[in-house]
Amino acid sequence: MRYGAIEAGGTKFVCGIGNEEGIIEDRISFPTEHPEQTMQKVIDYFADKNVTAIGIGSFGPINVDPSSPLYGYITTTPKPGWANYDVLGKLRESFNVPFGWDTDVNAAAFGEAKWGAAQGLDSCVYYTVGTGIGVGVYMEGRLVHGLVHPEGGHVMIRPASDDSFQGTCPYHGDCLEGMAAGPAIEQRWGVKGSELPVDHPTWDLEAYYLAQSISSTILMMSPKKIILGGGVMQQAHLFPLIHTHVQKILNGYIRTESLLENIHSYIVPPGLGTNSGLRGSLALGVEAKRNQQ
Rank of each mutant, 00 (worst) to 15 (best):
S161M: 14
D162Q: 09
D162C: 10
D162E: 13
S164N: 13
S164Y: 03
S164P: 00
F165K: 09
Q166N: 11
Q166G: 06
Q166T: 15
G167W: 05
G167A: 07
T168D: 09
C169Y: 03
P170D: 01
Y171R: 06
H172L: 01
D174W: 13
L176V: 10
E177Y: 06
M179K: 12
G182L: 01
P183Y: 04
P183N: 04
A184L: 02
I185R: 00
I185N: 02
E186N: 09
E186M: 11
E186H: 10
R188N: 02
R188H: 11
W189L: 13
G190A: 10
K192R: 12
K192H: 14
G193V: 05
G193Y: 10
G193A: 03
E195D: 15
L196I: 13
P197V: 07
P197N: 02
V198H: 14
V198S: 10
V198W: 09
V198G: 00
H200S: 12
P201R: 15
P201N: 14
T202N: 12
T202K: 08
D204G: 14
D204I: 14
L205F: 05
A207T: 05
Y208P: 00
Y209K: 12
Y209G: 10
L210F: 02
A211K: 05
Q212P: 03
Q212Y: 06
Q212C: 09
Q212D: 07
S213E: 08
I214R: 14
I214D: 12
S215G: 07
S215A: 15
S216W: 03
I218T: 06
I218A: 08
I218Y: 08
M220D: 06
M220Q: 09
M221K: 05
M221R: 02
M221A: 13
S222V: 09
S222C: 08
P223C: 00
K224F: 01
K225S: 10
I226G: 08
I227K: 00
I227E: 02
L228A: 03
G229R: 08
G229S: 12
G229I: 14
G230N: 09
G230D: 06
G231R: 05
G231F: 14
V232D: 10
M233E: 05
M233G: 13
Q234S: 11
Q234I: 01
A236L: 08
A236I: 12
H237I: 05
L238A: 04
L238G: 08
F239I: 06
L241S: 04
I242H: 06
I242D: 01
H245I: 07
V246R: 01
V246H: 04
Q247W: 11
Q247P: 09
I249S: 01
I249C: 00
L250T: 02
N251F: 13
Y253G: 04
Y253S: 09
I254M: 14
R255Y: 08
T256Y: 00
T256S: 14
E257D: 15
L259R: 03
L260E: 10
E261G: 01
N262T: 09
N262G: 01
H264F: 12
S265L: 14
I267F: 03
I267R: 05
I267N: 04
I267Y: 11
P269G: 07
P270S: 07
P270F: 07
L272K: 04
